[in-house]
């Protein structure tokens, strides 16, 4: 998004097909650039730099730091605190969906561009966490409509095509084949509406990624392994999502898909990482003993090193993270320009 304006300055050189291996450092432990592999020729390359800014996405930037070991930084670069890779977060997630009879047999109409069924539900119980039994909020994203038919369309119609029909009409329940089934696909097309809950996970030190000593990728770069678990804070929140989503759909006379997931099923929560909102692995803070970066995304240990992806996030926004990433990156950029102008960086 910001590459074109950067290019227009004439000051940008963009190297593509460059897989960075590590941040290089000098004898004092300051960053001197990066080494990378040219993925087309498989040749090792280096770039020198006064300032290194990592924005490789939260886990990858942690991986780069953890792989950048040296005498000064035996545990990885900018990791004297030991928290690089820790406090790893994702958004919580679960989905409830059903058929709204009001939307069945609709006249043909174009739903392209109708985001979220025209509805978005932000967190509304922010002042009631005491009674809720979980500390953080969530939102609902609504989906549905007459989307372009594709692979997987109306999969498993046998689980619902007897809904909204009397027992006389469908004595054998859902399923079937032939003219009636073909008509069912037409009737139900566009009538499914879903509510996807996305919530804030609590940052915890014992959720982390680390270098797997036994595994490298195709470039010989050590890869990450993950240790992340949900706690009761997330499970109770997702339980609330499920109950609320079902209540909303039922109040609209929907045929709700599936039963409420049980405690044994972790209330239907996604796997950590599944919502693909990784954050927190290089968290910012005022105390260098418990954080990697300062509030300008600058490494406490290495003043010419910055991280501007979701790694700096100390807590997870319950909304999706990209705007926050960009805002923090912009703030860091202003700071770098200011420090350069003052001659302190």
């Amino acid at each position: 998004m910001l590459i074109d304006p950067a290019r227009e300055t004439g000051q940008l050189t963009l190297l593509t097909n460059a897989m960075v291996r590590e941040v290089t450092t000098d004898a004092e432990g300051r960053a001197t650039g990066v080494s990378y592999i040219d993925t087309r020729t498989r040749s090792e390359q280096k770039v020198q730099a006064d300032i290194v800014i990592l924005a490789a996405s939260a886990c990858e930037s942690a991986r780069l730091l953890l792989n950048s070991t040296s005498n000064q930084h035996p545990n990885g670069l900018a990791n004297s605190s030991g928290v690089v890779g820790r406090y790893l977060m994702d958004s919580t997630g679960t989905t409830v969906a059903g058929i709204l009879p009001q939307l069945m047999n609709d006249p043909d109409h174009n739903c392209d561009g109708v985001g979220g069924m025209h509805v978005y539900i932000p967190w509304w119980l922010h002042d009631q966490h005491d009674r809720l039994g979980f500390p953080r909020g969530y939102h609902f994203e609504i989906w549905g409509g007459r989307g372009m038919p594709g692979y997987g369309i109306m999969n498993n119609i046998h689980t619902y095509n007897d809904a909204f029909a009397g027992p006389d009409e469908r004595p054998k329940g859902g399923g079937g084949y032939g003219p009636q089934l073909k008509e069912d696909y037409r009737r139900f097309y566009g009538s499914v509406v879903g509510l996807s809950g996305r919530g804030e996970m609590v940052a915890r030190e014992d959720n982390y990624c680390e270098i797997d000593p036994d595994t490298v990728d195709q470039y010989g770069i050590p890869t990450l392994r993950f240790n992340v678990n949900w706690s009761d804070a997330e499970l109770q929140q997702v339980r609330h999502m499920q109950e609320t989503g079902r209540e909303i759909l039922r109040s609209m006379d929907a045929h709700v898909f599936g039963d409420m997931p049980t405690e044994e099923q972790d209330y239907g929560i996604t796997m950590p990482g599944e919502i693909i909102h990784e954050a927190g692995t290089t968290r910012m803070g005022d105390d260098p003993r418990s954080s990697v970066l300062n509030s300008y995304c600058q490494a406490h240990d290495v003043d010419n090193l910055f991280v501007t992806d979701a790694g700096p996030l100390v807590s997870m926004p319950h909304k999706n993270p990209t705007w926050t990433i960009m805002a923090l990156a912009m703030r860091a950029s202003d700071y770098i320009i200011d420090q350069r102008n003052k001659g302190t960086l």
Binding site: P149, G152, M154, Y185, R186
Partner: peptide, 26 residues
Amino acid sequence: RNLVASGFFSSKMGVDDLGYIGNTYV
């Protein structure tokens, strides 16, 4: 059944059958 539906309704014939009228200039 799922595969037949996927194949049929993602074909031009099936898309027209369902009355999907998106993906056009508005």
